[in-house]
Design a protein around this nucleic acid. Structure first.
Length: 1152
RNA sequence: ACUCGGGUGGUGGAACUGGUAGACACGCAGGACUUAAAAUCCUGUUCACAGCAAUGUGAGUGUGGGUUCAACUCCCAUCCCGAGUACCA
């Protein structure tokens, strides 16, 4: 029987899916284990072989833990909001929701093919309203919390308000607080909220009218279009992660991350201790606050550098320097932060003309501005000590600023010396002190003189949390009179409205700002925009219209459950492709849903329709709307509850029965208005009034019937929604919690579930997330913990970093020719040239500079173009071109495939070969479609099977290491699985296994394998585990061992790595249950005990021979025995050994 | 520029705690089986020099230095490559 991997894998994947073998329960007597992969972004390019590396590792470990008796949670989902989908939408007009959906489908199919053990019932998508409802909810928790410095934790902002109201604080008394306006109070609170709004710098591109990501800015201009980009301040949301800086540092002590990862986070947080010192400025009232970690160098300050965007700059710049400073500021505006820091070789700066006064000795210090100082760091000012800081030194040198030496001989005048051990000179009261000791003295003096204070600083900045983009979570915030108002939690999710265009809104706002209906919640439209007559399907004055629209908005915000159910099915053109609107005013009425194109109204009965008076009103309304051409269908709440399907069917049928209105017919206001004019006044008929006609007293009566007054009455003034959306990391900051309880609609994650699953035990992902995602999610976890919502304050117990798989690109080399100057374009056949220009094999390319090679190639060229206008041309240096790695076998190009490649672009190409082959060049680069070096896992699974693919990915090298992909070695792994198969099945004889007892040798092989596989899996050394399997199978094959007792155990060990073949053979051997739940073999050390060892013997550290010795010998006996050895004697050459080193069970070294 | 990784045969890598450098694979070379191919199996394969050969000698883990009886492993310096640097995720 043959190893038919395709059949076997399909069979077991179907079986596992149908029997839900990967379903995970939150109730189990087993100990829990939570394995998580970093949230993937479903990119349009699909999965390439680099993605699954970590997934395979986590899958192996999950299956291993399951075999070891754990209840393992190993979920998968998608971080489906993000810029690429929006970018794609801008380019192609396809809605991000559509493309994202498509991408996820592809991703899932690809993942399933590899045979992962995900519980898909727990799948998450951050762009799903049922998910981001809780992202928004947590945002509101952040918004409504502050960091209490006394308790060092988050607390409800209400506590702070209470404190202000009763006790006041350092800056104001309780009475003062209570006298503040609402706006003043809110501004003060905004300075404490964990999610807060403030001004932040963005990359502003005037030409595109939008804010750009750093990625989209290349060399100071936009990637799209190459327009200039400048730094601009805009109102943004931030998370106050700096408040948590210290706890984020301390938390690192409690988690199992690699040292380098912890180090990166520590450096990112950048805690430093020093002093903030106040400098007066000559001839100015302004003062300069400077933070320094080296107050001991205060007398070595030769100049100050402040960030160009520091607000003080324009105040202190002298008239003389003004023009120059302005010029410099314009230059800096065009530079990105990264450029400003990275290009240290080019020194730029500008003198302001102002001088700071050294508070100790009154020395005048020139104040400069320079791009290498950023406003966001510390106070945006540094005191420059050129003898101790290399960058300051370079700056001083460049601008010829005199340098004061305070460290004597430690400074050589050629470069700065950042020592802390020098004895201070030229330093007034610090003279003679060692710098280390002088620090404390200087700080004390600063505090004593009241010119500054001791201070702990952090390099980390608060995290920007808004994006001027469409495809992200909308903020549950509205603005009125400059005050942010959180939306009530009961109104969540605030769904992302549908847009048809993705271009930016006005004034740098995101695309959402274009949806005036959505954004503008204010009852009064601005007269400029709307004219004096109300728009739409009304015949009403603006005053009346305002009221109607107010009602409509309000109703829209407070739908009944039934309405909501139907709305979810109707929105976004889900039924028949027609657009429905909710609570859209028509002719002064507000129907529940309306399709304008079809003039179809859908009503779901609310409670107040039962009243007799209301029924008459309804009937009148229906008749009146019918006159205007609207058809109305009505459903009761019960009908909706009983069968949403039937309701939708009826709606669909109703749509079919009506013709589509022409756009013109639909849009013209007069059309409807003229119909409206025909209507008799309703009041006269004795029917219930329509809202816009009612007087305020009647208004009251509606209120009493369960309708809420419009925002007009509540807020007054303009009310707008926040139009930014949240960044990519919003959804991924807490997703690990949602997996625990993914369908809960009462809370983000039930406390019982989070108490059970607790921390993620193993988190696998790349180091590229080291300082972004990992810090944010750690912070969110701490906040949720502080607020008592979860019971732990670090999300990830252990972190394993997977390396990147790079692409291994292949190159072909196309010859070039020198086209003579005199030759006009018409005189030679250019088409023919490009068609037939030969490709040079690598050897010729490498040796092209050699005259003999060139001569040879020229001859070949002449031969190819013999008798054409091209024959006289001189050849020149060939150019490398990327070629698809999939048509190259190792380095040898498949010439036939190459001729077919790219629709036969090179069908007629000529080749200059070496040894009859075309050899390609090789280079390691990022895996990307444009470099033709991507390899698709699907194809490998088809060709070799998922088990081979999984094991090969692991075999490639350590999970943590980055390495280039090369498909070439996959055959070896495949051969191994076939060899395993052949232990049980012979091509001719079929089943060949026996029930015989295992021999000692066989048991030794087995138990050595058990030991090594267990150890290797535990320490995530999957590549050596795969080798161990190979060794084991090689040895069993050598022993001709086909014994069930041995191979059965091996299959359990192998199951996490190659689940399909293991499951198949496990059943073939006659086992009933799944191998997934077998008992993991126990290692028996007694079987491996040895009595002798073949010791390596070195003389002077060089290996000379091996001697087999009993393991129970002691030093003395060993010494005697090895001195008898002929080879040792030969190397001693009659001399006496100085020393003999003997390490038991390791080695022997004779020192002469 | 800064922070963090990495550099071992023709290739991917192994050597876990300083103790036989190159496990296991790929590739390559030679052979067996076969009419042939595929598949499979066997042998060899770090480099240099010497030898018909068994084998021997020397060198060898980016480069230069150091510590040690012993260094891929620890220390110092240096070169090269990768990741991140706050709006890609």
């Amino acid at each position: 029987m043959e190893y038919k991997f395709n059949e076997i894998e399909k069979k077991w994947q179907d079986y596992w899916r149908e029997n839900k073998v990967y379903r995970v329960s939150n109730n189990s007597g087993k100990p829990k284990y939570y394995v998580l992969d970093m949230f993937p972004y479903p990119s349009g390019a699909g999965l390439h072989v680099g993605h699954p590396l970590g997934y395979i590792a986590s899958d192996i470990y999950s299956r291993y833990k399951r075999l070891k008796g754990f209840n393992v949670l190993h979920p998968m989902g998608f971080d489906s909001f993000g810029l690429p989908a929006e970018q794609y939408a801008l380019e192609t007009g396809q809605h991000p929701a559509t493309t994202t959906e498509k991408n996820i489908t592809t991703f899932k199919a690809q993942l399933d093919k590899i045979g992962f053990c995900y519980d898909w019932d727990r799948e998450l998508r951050t762009s799903d309203p049922q998910y981001y409802k809780w992202t928004q909810w947590i945002f509101l928790q952040l918004y409504n919390s502050y960091f209490c410095n006394t308790q060092q934790k988050a607390r409800p902002i209400a506590d702070l308000v209470k404190k202000y109201e009763t006790k006041g604080c350092k800056n104001f008394t309780a009475d003062q607080w209570n006298a503040f306006t609402k706006k003043e109070q809110e501004d003060i609170l905004m300075n404490r909220r964990l999610a807060f709004s403030a001004y932040g710098e963005v990359n502003w591109c005037e030409a595109l009218g939008t804010v750009l990501a750093n990625d989209e800015v290349v060399n100071g201009v936009s990637e799209r279009g190459g327009h200039p980009v400048e730094r601009k301040k805009m109102r943004q949301w931030f998370l106050r992660i700096t408040a948590y800086a210290n706890r984020l540092l301390q938390g690192l002590e409690t988690v199992d991350f690699s040292d380098s990862m912890k180090e990166m986070q520590r450096n990112w947080i950048g805690k430093s201790e020093g002093a903030e010192i106040e400098f007066n400025i000559k001839n100015s009232d302004s003062k300069l606050n400077v933070y320094t970690t080296r107050p001991d160098t205060i007398f070595g300050v030769d100049f100050m550098v402040i960030a160009p965007e520091h607000e003080i700059v324009l105040n202190i710049t002298t008239a003389n320097q003004k023009a120059e400073v302005e010029k410099y500021l314009a230059y800096v505006k065009s530079r990105s932060e990264r450029e400003r820091l990275a290009e240290a070789k080019i020194i730029t700066g500008c003198f302001t003309g102002a001088y700071a006064i050294n508070p100790f000795d009154g020395k005048e210090i020139p104040i400069w501005i320079a791009e290498y100082v950023l406003a966001g760091y510390g106070t945006g000012t540094i005191m420059a000590v050129p003898c101790g800081d290399q960058r300051d030194f370079a700056f001083a040198n460049h601008f010829k600023i005199p340098i004061t030496n305070i460290i004597g001989s430690h400074f050589n005048g050629q470069e700065a010396n950042a020592t802390k051990d020098a004895v201070l000179q030229n330093s007034d009261f610090l003279n003679g002190m060692i710098m280390k000791d002088a620090m404390a003295v200087a700080i004390n003096k600063v505090e004593e003189l009241g010119i500054g204070k001791r201070k702990v600083n952090y390099r980390m900045r608060d995290a920007g949390f808004s994006r001027q983009r469409y495809w992200g979570e909308p903020f549950p915030i509205t603005w009125s009179d400059g005050i942010a108002n959180p939306i009530d939690a009961s109104e969540l999710p605030l769904e992302l409205p549908h847009v048809d265009k993705y271009s930016p809104g006005p004034n740098g706002e995101g695309p959402l700002a274009n949806l005036t209906d959505w954004v503008d919640l204010s009852p009064n439209p601005s007269p400029n925009e709307r004219g004096t007559k109300a728009p739409g399907y009304y015949n009403s004055t603006i005053a009346e219209w305002k009221k109607t629209i107010g009602f409509a908005k309000q109703n829209r915000k407070e739908p009944t459950i039934e309405e909501n159910i139907i709305w979810q099915k109707l929105r976004n053109r889900k039924i028949g492709g027609f657009k429905f609107r909710r609570q859209h005013p028509i002719a002064g009425y507000i129907p529940d849903f309306v399709c304008l194109e079809k003039k179809l109204i859908v009503e779901i009965d609310g409670g107040y329709h039962n009243k007799e008076e209301q029924k008459i009103y309804d009937a009148g309304r229906e008749a009146w709307l019918a006159e205007c051409g609207f058809t109305m269908i009505r459903f009761t709440n019960d009908e909706v509850k009983n069968s949403v399907k039937n309701v939708l069917k009826s709606i669909e049928q109703a749509l079919l029965n009506k013709k589509v209105l022409e756009k013109e017919e639909l849009k013209t206001e007069t059309n409807i208005n003229s119909e409206l004019e025909k209507q008799p006044a309703l009041e006269n008929e004795g029917l219930a009034p329509s809202p816009q006609e009612s007087e305020s007293s009647k208004y009251e009566s509606l209120k009493s019937e369960g309708l809420t007054p419009s925002p007009l009455e509540r807020a007054g003034g303009e009310v707008r929604r926040e139009t930014s959306t949240m960044p990519g990391y919003a959804g991924s900051s807490w997703y690990f919690l949602r997996y625990m309880d993914p369908h809960n609609d009462k809370t983000f994650c039930d406390r019982k579930a989070s108490d059970y699953w607790n921390q993620v035990d193993l988190y696998i992902g790349g180091t590229e997330h080291a300082v972004g995602h990992l810090l944010y999610s750690r912070m969110w976890t701490k906040v949720l913990f502080d607020l008592g919502l979860i019971g732990f304050d670090e999300p990830y117990k252990k972190l394993l970093n997977q390396g990147m798989i790079q692409g291994s690109s292949r190159f072909v080399y196309r010859l070039n020719v020198e086209i003579p100057f005199t030759e006009s374009k018409l005189n030679f056949d250019e088409k023919l040239l490009w068609k037939k220009l030969p490709f040079l094999s690598k050897f010729h390319y490498d040796n092209f500079h050699l005259p003999e090679t060139k001569k040879l190639i020229q001859a070949e060229y002449d031969e190819i173009f013999k008798n054409t206008s091209l024959s006289e041309f001189k050849i020149s240096q060939p150019s490398p071109l990327h070629v698809d790695v999939n048509i190259v076998d190792g380095v040898e190009l498949d010439i036939e495939e190459f001729k077919k490649w790219r629709n036969g672009e090179y069908a007629n190409a000529e080749f200059i070969l070496e040894d009859g082959k075309y050899i390609c060049g090789v280079e390691t680069e990022k895996m990307s479609k444009s470099k033709f070096n991507t390899v698709n896992p699907d194809e490998l699974c088809d060709k070799y099977g998922a088990d081979t693919f999984r094991m090969y990915e692991m075999f490639l090298g350590p999970v943590e290491a980055s390495k280039p992909w090369d498909t070439k070695g996959i055959e070896g792994v495949h051969r191994f699985l076939r060899k395993l198969w052949r232990l049980l099945f012979d091509e001719v004889k079929g089943k060949i296994w026996t029930d015989e007892k295992a021999t000692d040798t066989e048991l030794k092989v087995l138990h050595r394998t058990i030991k090594k596989i267990e150890e290797d899996t535990e320490r995530f050394s999957f590549n050596t585990a795969v080798s161990t399997f190979m060794i084991c199978v090689n040895e069993l094959a050598d022993l001709k061992c086909s014994k069930k007792v041995v191979i059965e155990q091996l299959l359990i060990l192998l199951a996490p790595y190659a689940p399909h073949i293991s499951e198949e053979l496990w059943h073939q051997l006659g086992n009933k249950g799944s191998v997934l739940d077998a008992n993991y073999p126990t290692f028996n050390p007694a079987l491996l005990v040895e009595s002798t060892k073949d010791y390596p013997v070195s003389v002077n550290g060089k290996l000379r021979t091996n001697i087999e010795l009993s393991l129970n010998l002691e030093q003395k006996q060993v010494e005697e025995m090895i001195l008898e050895n002929d080879i040792v004697k030969k190397w001693l050459d009659g001399k006496l050994p100085k020393k003999i080193i003997f390490v038991k069970n390791k080695m022997i070294n004779v020192v002469v």
